[in-house]
Nucleic acid binder design. Structure first.
Lengths: 148, 148
DNA sequence: TTGTTATTGAGACTCATTCTCAATTAATAT
DNA sequence: ATATTAATTGAGAATGAGTCTCAATAACAA
């Protein structure tokens, strides 16, 4: 389970280092995303927050998401026509995605071997890898079967 | 070198299969992207076309880019705040990208080993991989050195 | 408490992309 | 060729995610 207090502390530290403050609004957004399982988009997040009776403006939601992204609490899964999809990665093991072109299902996976190989490839180029995004598109087991 | 005639033929076939036609406008856009080396964005492409004296509306450029994307002639490199960046991949060997967070440099690379490993990972999930995008972010050799 | 500075919210604004629809053009049938 | 039918185009309006403005407010330091 995610330690929300630690999250709050870590985020506060990040803000401090940048001469910024932990406000109520930021705290509300942080709490919300730390409870998120799975992917989310800014507007749903905004609506969820409103539904709980708390008041944070859309502008602040966007502003806070940018901060959370910079500080590494959340990462961008993909950008679609309808906007950006995020996921919370704080305290969560890194993973990559498979995306079914047919039903839209997203499979998360992790491979130590893959990570190692990427490091090796970076070294060969003199590149210092810091993070990466890998999305494999194709057809999930179910859709593959349905297609004959 | 890319065979533009073959490109035209292949694109026409794709269109036919979807009950669509190869118009002058589409042909102009196709030609332009087949001459593109490197990455490009829709608006620059539009301006380039206008500069050569040819007339294709912005709307048609966007519409054609969508078709070229669906038919696999071009792929999306990344979506930025300023819009989508494409690259022509027709007749070009698949590759992945490293992106320097400091200077913005993009390094293209290809690893057979990486491709194989991904296939293996897909199989394990019963997933049928069709394409993928891998972007490694970090620091290029030069910037790495400058940061000491 | 007070002063200083960051932050907020409402709504205006931006800008990439899509949509509208009358006019045009490609492919096909006559 | 010519008519018929359906796809396509262009100009500009519309859309919509995300950002910006700025006066009012809240957080922090002394």
């Amino acid at each position: 389970m995610i330690d929300k207090n630690k999250g709050k502390k870590d985020f506060t530290n990040f803000l401090r280092e940048h001469g910024q403050r932990l406000t109520n609004e930021r705290s509300v957004v942080l709490n919300r995303i730390l409870s998120c399982t799975g992917h989310f988009d800014p507007d749903s997040l905004y609506l969820q927050i409103r539904q709980t009776g708390l008041k944070v403006s859309r502008a602040s939601v966007y502003r806070t998401l940018n901060l959370l992204h910079k500080s590494g609490f959340i990462s961008i899964v993909r950008k679609t026509e309808k906007g950006t999809i995020y996921e919370c990665v704080y305290g969560i093991k890194h993973h990559d995605h498979m995306h079914c072109n047919e039903c839209g299902k997203v499979i998360e996976f992790y491979s130590e071997e893959l990570e190692k190989l990427q490091e090796k490839i970076c070294e060969k180029q003199g590149f210092k890898g810091q993070s990466h995004t890998l999305e494999i598109r194709g057809y999930c087991a179910k859709c593959k079967k349905n297609m004959k």
